[in-house]
């Protein structure tokens, strides 16, 4: 099939950026979306033009590196990562808009590549359990009810891609933050730092220029890993508890 792409091109941080139209011919429906962009880039390179820069690595939906807004939807129409989106989701003659994540906290580096360093800094603020190497008790010392373990796991599957931020009208990073707060907060090992963790992570989130959460739910709707929206309720509950305890 033949596709028309309108792709965001931006040389660097200082550049204004614009949408540029490209035709891609003979697209197979078994191609992934990124393989279709590879085909475009091969063509551009041979023509001596700058290929479209986009982040990607594992191409199997787990590293979280890839992510673009496709026709206005983060990761496109299939609720998966961009690398796992295949061209069978489109049809011959389609015009597809491709844009980077748009959020103040994620400045564009080039074309479709953005800087998501803010996520790492939220983790630095408290998204861990302090367990220096060598200090651990036997793994079976502390049985964990399966329901708690499963809930922690569901939250832990976050890949840090940033689609939640791109989808949110407020550009909030709350689903990402809440996923980590819930993952660690559900586990007995995570209790000693639970109150401090949520406060520090939320503070860092706000410092990074993410918007506030107003419970719209667009984040969970595009999340390729299905992180549930109620992790944000959990975060709010933990935050309120931490602040009310007065122990911080």
């Amino acid at each position: 099939m033949n596709i028309t792409l309108r792709v965001w091109r931006q040389k660097g941080r200082g550049d204004e950026g614009r949408m540029v139209t490209y035709k891609v011919e003979d697209v197979s429906q078994d191609m992934s979306f990124l393989e279709m962009l590879d085909v475009l880039n091969e063509k551009l390179t041979l023509a001596g033009e700058d290929p479209v820069a986009f982040d990607h690595d594992c191409r199997e939906g787990i590293c979280g590196a890839c992510g673009v807004v496709i026709n206005g939807v983060a990761h496109g129409p299939e609720t998966t990562t961009t690398c796992q989106l295949h061209m069978r989701s489109f049809k011959d003659g389609d015009v597809i808009d491709v844009e980077p994540w748009r959020a103040k906290a994620f400045p564009v580096i080039k074309d479709l590549v953005v800087d998501r360093g803010a996520f790492d800094r939220i983790i630095q603020a408290g998204g861990y359990i302090s367990a220096p190497t060598g200090t651990a008790p036997d793994a079976h010392a502390n049985p964990i009810p399966k329901a708690d373990a499963d809930r922690a796991f569901d939250a832990a599957t976050c890949i840090g891609c940033g689609a939640c931020v791109a989808a949110c009208p407020n550009a909030s990073g709350m689903l990402f933050t809440a996923a980590k707060v819930t993952h660690l907060g559900m586990l007995p090992q995570g209790q000693p730092e639970r109150a401090a963790r949520v406060v520090k992570m939320v503070n860092q989130h706000d410092e990074e220029d993410f918007g506030g959460c107003t419970n719209i739910g667009e984040c969970a709707a595009v999340c390729p890993k299905g992180i549930p929206l109620d992790t944000i309720s959990q975060l709010n509950k933990d935050l309120l508890g931490a602040l009310a305890s007065g122990k911080l």
Binding site: Y128, I129, T135, P137, D138, A139, A156, L184, G190
Partner: peptide, 10 residues
């Protein structure tokens, strides 16, 4: 043991 202590959800 180390991974469980860190909160790895096995």
């Amino acid at each position: 043991d180390q991974c469980v202590a860190q909160g790895v959800p096995f």
